[in-house]
Design a protein around this nucleic acid. Structure first.
Ligand SMILES: [Mn+2]
Ligand SMILES: [Mn+2]
Ligand SMILES: [Zn+2]
Ligand SMILES: [Zn+2]
Lengths: 151, 151
DNA sequence: ATTGATAATGAAAATCATTTTCAATAAGTG
DNA sequence: CACTTATTGAAAATGATTTTCATTATCAAT
């Protein structure tokens, strides 16, 4: 997502540019993690102590709607969010999830082959199952290095 | 999962064979859907009107633990469950999720190629990222035929 | 810059799925 | 049958997310 693309989309949708929205976008831009709504809220409080958790939820919903943000369910009971294409050179990727410490790792190795197959599968599924596919997720669950050999 | 395997596993774990557990397993065996805990609870009520929703949750947790059942988060806010290998010839598979009507479709076409690549990727990730991978999920999100062309 | 229409906000209450608590019950064992 | 203890169900608690509603901020038009 280019630097200002989300602002265009906001405007096109008739949405207003507000301080909470700018702040939440900034927080998302500056992290390489997969924060929950509350994680983001806590960050935001440092800058704007009067921001509401409700606003964080609403803003994230909005960002998801306009395609600026992706929401993930990694299975720990809370939704997690990640800016689409941030930084710009980081494209679509898949995830490794540690079942013990709940850490989440992006990986981009092997993505070329994977995405090729995903694309092929999407096409095939579209015709075989009459499904119009919009996006996909691939999650590998297991144990991270720290959790395999703690010392 | 062979017809009686889960009972062995239960016994080995020192778990008791109870009416609620038998009933919930039966319900899971007889569906080809991906029911939530409450879906299962409602089914169970027809047979045993005194069963508790709490028991359904606990039993599902147990089944997940012994590997008889898989839990999925498809993004609609509630966990969904599916018996492992049911029917026996249905092996590991991936999912199509309709973003409008929330219907979930198993697909097994193309699984050979997919699983081959997944296996390869798992191996590579294990070494590159020092991750011990236990399982994976692949979800395609989109719109089903009904939701594309309603009449 | 001022105004006005209304989109957005924050606090509190509500909702929804899931978990915890605890006293009563039922399963397995001898 | 009698005993031990895992399991159950009801009610209460929890935790994430949503709804409600009165107040505030944004933006386009003056
Ligand atoms: Mn990511
Ligand atoms: Mn399935
Ligand atoms: Zn870990
Ligand atoms: Zn549909």
């Amino acid at each position: 997502m280019k630097a200002h693309r989300w602002q265009n989309r906001m405007q096109c949708g008739g949405f207003r540019r507000t301080h909470p929205r700018e702040l939440i976008m900034k927080i998302l831009k500056e992290t390489d993690k997969h924060p929950s709504a509350e994680d983001i809220y806590i960050q935001a409080l440092n800058v704007n102590p009067s921001i509401g958790l409700t606003t964080v939820y609403r803003t994230l919903d909005l960002f998801v709607q306009i395609g600026a943000v992706q929401r993930f369910d990694f299975g720990d009971g809370k939704a997690r969010y990640e800016l689409t294409d941030n930084p710009p050179e980081k494209e679509h990727h898949h995830h490794l999830i540690c079942m013990k410490c709940k850490s989440i790792v992006d990986y981009t190795d092997f993505m070329k082959e994977e995405l090729e197959l995903m694309k092929k599968t999407e096409d095939a599924l579209s015709t075989q199952h009459q499904f119009k596919i919009v996006h996909h997720t691939v999650h590998f669950y297991g144990y991270c290095r720290k959790c395999i050999s703690p010392e």
